[in-house]
Design a binder for these strands. Structure first.
Lengths: 262, 262
DNA sequence: AATCAGTGGTTCGATTATAGAACCAAGGAG
DNA sequence: CTCCTTGGTTCTATAATCGAACCACTGATT
């Protein structure tokens, strides 16, 4: 039993993305197929509450400062800034590459925190970016620890989207099996061209997969060999991180993980 | 005309703060004085939509990963990561201190972005923190450019809260006047003990005050003299920033600025 | 200048989702 | 076992929402 009005309101919020960060009233109501009166009432409510900002000149709506505040609440609660970030920073200093924290959420991976290396050429910022689990070391290493049935359905998706790095379902599933066996994953140019990454898994207190930690940098500096040299640094610090993550409990919806046991 | 249901839903969201990041159902409904049925329906709606996460063990609710994503939308839209951050980084490198972007919002100031210096002792992270305009250089320099009537009411508030750095309303208003004349503000130990800051104002395309940019560091390294030496660096780069901010249009509610003209 | 199509915003009665008391089942504490 | 609390559900009177029709305005097009 859930509130129809709030449900609609959140669907409206969902329309504000990196690709389409601003919306006019009529434009938005067309997009989500709602009567413009409803959209108007909800938009002004969001505006009154400081969640949306309506540009008085263009009359277009956009997400407000409120979300910077709420992001802070999440980060503080997860101890990202005070505990997790320092560990990531140390890895970044020792490896000389950017460090990425990815969290499993709703059958997708979200970049939750990126600590950049001090090098001139480095992994670009994309915090908050959400994408499918079949692409990129940071995501594939998570996929490798999911139940086989989930792996199948997600790999099927990848095949359906004809992802360039998937030759066939079978070879990709075997690839995931190897990743799980060796406990890390390397990839080149999957999520971003010219970027390579090396990732290890993160687990919660029940030893269920929670996300991954990766080092990422330009291909020419992070070949498979070079990243295998840096792997021990990553693995060593991840031990510390896993000890912390066992207690923290990320707000990461992973219902599908337990579904099969019910 | 605004939606009562959505309004309630957002009031519920507002209860999730850095101080109280998790809530049980009954506990929360007591806090905000709402029937627990309503709260329950709204909470599950938020949960279904990925905005809240309900810890299955403790049955307590907390903000979800969604807010990290939405924060990213705001930052991307404001060009914070790609345009503003590099400028802040340059100031941080040249001055050796942390750089803070503060935005005026609803008669308060919000720390929107902090670029940390590379020094060991540095300004702690507090992105998203919101506070009154009468305290701290970053906030006072904003206050100094607001209409006098607003200044009066906000300073009255400060006096009412018996802020330690306000001796009397009159002297504080004269202090603000000097700040506006010289175009910058220095403070020591107001927002955080042991932290000093030096701030300059930021304006939008209509030359209305939008926020401030500050360098912040430990008192012993950032005396008034030392910060006046670094001031030219700050001012030089802020010229660039103001040229950009004139076009960007921050989602910063500042209705009270124009109210008096209507 | 008149028309038209678009915009954001408002009104008001019919409709429908919501409010909230009363209700479970479960889990401590005594 | 009782008492109190918890999260969660049910049901109907009631109150909020829905949405067609409406303004006022802007900017092309004729």
């Amino acid at each position: 039993m859930s509130s129809k009005t709030v449900d609609k309101a959140l669907s409206i919020l969902d329309a504000f993305t990196v690709e389409t960060p601003t919306w006019g009233l009529r434009e938005l109501s067309r997009q989500i197929d709602m009567n413009h009166t409803i959209v108007h009432r909800i938009l002004t409510t969001f505006e009154d509450k400081g969640y949306l900002y309506c540009n008085p000149e263009t009359k277009k709506y956009e997400l407000g400062i409120k979300f910077i505040e709420l992001n802070n609440v999440v980060e503080e609660h997860l101890n990202i800034s005070s505990i997790i970030q320092p560990i990531m920073k140390e890895i970044a200093l020792k490896t000389g590459e950017s460090v990425v924290l990815t969290i499993l959420n709703e059958e997708e991976g979200v970049f939750v925190k990126i600590v950049e290396s001090e090098q001139k050429v480095r992994f670009a910022e994309s915090v908050g970016k959400r994408s499918s689990l079949y692409i990129g070391a940071s995501h594939k290493v998570i996929l490798a620890y999911l139940p086989l049935e989930i792996q199948h359905s997600i790999v099927d998706e990848g095949v359906a989207h004809s992802a360039k790095h998937i030759k066939s379902k079978e070879t990709f599933l075997r690839h995931l099996e190897r990743v799980r066996e060796q406990g890390w994953c390397y990839s080149e140019g999957e999520t971003f061209d010219d970027v390579a990454a090396c990732s290890v898994p993160l687990f919660d207190n029940k030893y269920q997969i929670l996300g991954s930690l990766s080092i990422a940098g330009p291909k020419y500096r992070l070949s498979q060999e070079q990243s295998e040299e840096k792997l021990p640094i990553l693995q060593e610090h991840v031990k510390k991180l896993n000890a912390i993550l066992g207690k923290v409990n990320f707000p990461s919806r992973r219902n599908f993980l337990t579904k099969k046991f019910i």
